[in-house]
Amino acid sequence: MSPASILVVEDDDDLRQTLARRLSEAGYEVAMAATGPDALAAVAESVPDLVVLDVMLPGLDGIEVCRRLRADHPLLYILMLTARADELDRVVGLEVGADDYVTKPFSLQEVVARIRSALRRVRTVREQMAAAPSADDEAPIVAGGLTVDPVRREVSLDGEEVHLTVREFDLLLFLARHPDRPFTRSQLLQQIWDISYEGYDRTIDSHVQRLRAKIEADAGNPTFIRTVWGVGYKFAGEENGLRSADPG
Rank of each mutant, 00 (worst) to 15 (best):
L7Y: 00
D11Q: 01
D13M: 14
L15A: 09
R16F: 01
R21F: 12
Y28N: 02
A39E: 00
A42F: 02
A44V: 00
D54P: 05
V55G: 05
P58F: 06
D61L: 07
R67H: 13
L69I: 08
R70H: 04
A71S: 15
D72G: 11
H73Y: 07
L75V: 09
L76H: 01
M80F: 01
D99H: 09
P105D: 08
F106R: 08
F106V: 06
E110I: 09
A113L: 13
A113I: 04
S117W: 09
V125Q: 14
E127F: 14
A131I: 03
S134E: 11
P140I: 05
G144R: 04
S156R: 14
L157F: 05
G159L: 10
E160V: 10
T165C: 11
T165Y: 00
E168H: 03
D170R: 06
L171W: 03
F174P: 01
A176F: 00
H178C: 08
P179I: 10
D180S: 05
Q187N: 07
L188K: 06
W193V: 00
S196K: 12
T203R: 08
D205M: 14
V208W: 01
L211Q: 12
R212M: 10
E216F: 02
A219V: 10
A219E: 15
I225H: 04
W229N: 13
V231T: 15
A236P: 06
L242T: 15
S244I: 09
A245P: 13
